[in-house]
């Protein structure tokens, strides 16, 4: 099994990880599009290896309010996956899915809306992981979604800490998607353990 050093990824490995992000996010967007029964466009994902300090900047600053939905991964790979989007994007998606008659008018999400958000996370993560699973021929199962709405820095600390165990940078796959009216930004963060990185890449012949 190959040992991967995240700070020394070669171009080939980088491209493969980008492609994984691309296929995963593509499937997730399709799933989302079917769920809300509307056309959703997706831009080519950006794959970045970021310093911890830079991590929260890309989502509008450490104090920006975001929704984070986290899944623990099991099966042939261990790790976590997180889907994150800012609060406006989340509200927009929830309204597309269940309309706006369930809001409680307080600016905070109602029980029903939170449940819808969890389901959005579930579907997106499920589509993402199943494409990764069929691409690599590995069995990957995920936990139930865990959601938190808080400052981006605080939410990102959870995956950052996992990356912190293996290096000083985090691998982030950023996907922008949206419908005709407005675009929403979503971020996928796949956090396999170091061994799992090796297994993913070697399952693809690298």
């Amino acid at each position: 099994m190959s040992q991967i050093d995240l700070n020394k990824l070669d171009n080939m490995q980088y491209d493969v990880l980008r492609e994984i992000g691309n296929i995963g996010a593509g499937n997730a967007t399709t799933a989302l599009s079917q769920m809300i029964n509307a056309k959703i466009d997706m831009k080519v994902p950006k794959v970045d290896l970021l310093e911890f300090k830079e991590l929260s900047e890309i989502v509008g600053g450490a104090e920006n309010l975001v929704v984070g939905i986290l899944f623990a991964l099991q099966g042939n790979i261990d790790g976590m996956m997180m889907f994150m989007m800012d609060i406006q994007a989340s509200r927009h998606l929830v309204e597309l899915l269940i309309g706006n008659e369930y809001g409680n008018g307080s600016g905070e999400f109602s029980e029903m809306e939170l449940s819808a958000l969890n389901e959005i996370g579930n579907i997106i993560a499920g589509a993402y992981l199943s494409s990764l699973s069929s691409l690599t021929n590995m069995l990957i199962t995920s936990s139930v979604p865990y959601m938190a709405i808080d400052m981006a820095g605080a939410i990102l600390s959870v995956p950052a800490i996992e990356f912190g165990k293996i290096g000083d940078k985090a691998l982030l796959i950023q996907t922008e998607f949206g419908d005709e009216e407005r675009s929403v930004n979503g971020y996928f963060i796949l956090i396999p353990t170091l061994e799992s990185y090796g297994e993913i890449l070697s399952s693809l012949g690298l």
Partner: peptide, 9 residues
């Protein structure tokens, strides 16, 4: 002196 968005850190 400040630090923003402490989570599990």
């Amino acid at each position: 002196i400040t630090t923003l968005g402490l989570g599990s850190c």
